[in-house]
Write a protein that binds this DNA or RNA. Sequence first.
DNA 1: CTCTGAATGAGACTCATTATCAAAACTGAG
DNA 2: CTCAGTTTTGATAATGAGTCTCATTCAGAG
Lengths: 156, 156
Amino acid sequence: MENTTTPDDQYFEHHAFVHKRLSTENHRYTTGRHRLVDALAESAQPLTLPEIVEIAPDLAASSVYRNLEVLERCGVVNRITSGGGHAHFELAEPLLSHHHHLVCVSCGTIEDVRLDDELEALLDQNLNLLADRASFKPLHHSLDLHGHCAECEDPA
Amino acid sequence: MENTTTPDDQYFEHHAFVHKRLSTENHRYTTGRHRLVDALAESAQPLTLPEIVEIAPDLAASSVYRNLEVLERCGVVNRITSGGGHAHFELAEPLLSHHHHLVCVSCGTIEDVRLDDELEALLDQNLNLLADRASFKPLHHSLDLHGHCAECEDPA
DNA sequence: CTCTGAATGAGACTCATTATCAAAACTGAG
DNA sequence: CTCAGTTTTGATAATGAGTCTCATTCAGAG
């Protein structure tokens, strides 16, 4: 009897989670949406629309856009708008652990990085203080480091 | 004999700085650009293009866009793209001290907030460490708190 | 199986931003 | 001051990421 979670378990948990989130808003977890979530889950980095369509060429661009919108509203997907060009999309917090981004200003790719838990807690505490002072009701924070990725800096 | 800087001094210092930045790239500090910088300097918050044009109606939208681009390349202006709708623009770091943003997800306004120096230093240190580990050459970081502003949360 | 509302996909459309280009303004040399 | 060579301007056209439309298809309840 297993009491550790295998990758397969995780896979089904993810989809169960998405299914629940969608159905509570009267949305269906269709094949297309399933494929979209798979594409995002299998990628190491946040993806743009063209990248998603390249990975899953059977998905129609207009449907992908619509479904990203639906999934975003349901808290399954995060949209990252780091300026010029396409937005990037990734799975949201419960599916992907809290993290931040290294944004390459020259090629536009985005890499995930995780901050020390202690620092993250300290940061959250201070941000909540600031927000409170401004009567601002915080939902989430985003911390991006902009610069040049290894590839662009030193094209081997 | 004064040895403290007055608001007027600051005003001229700002413009001297912009002038220098522009001229090192063979650009002129024209009246239109001067007005644009004034509009940004006089505002408490980062502005969108329609807001800039409303403040300074004699500026042509196409010129403002072009000049924001020029000023951005010269490191005088920062562009903030927080998703849907217009981008926001503010003066860059040497003219405005380092700060972060409270982004209202419902009305889109952006407010500036400053973090404790100590925390900021700690954050920078950790980010540099992460960047180094990924062979990423950092330029600057951005930390935005997304949520609902006082006005949207509680429309008096 | 049937029925109903949700989802799909191709294409039209929006609209923030960028590019174009002729006219105007500025700069430095003579 | 004037001329030549730039840069800037501003109205307008073009771009393009993202959204909307709508007829068709599909999923799930009964």
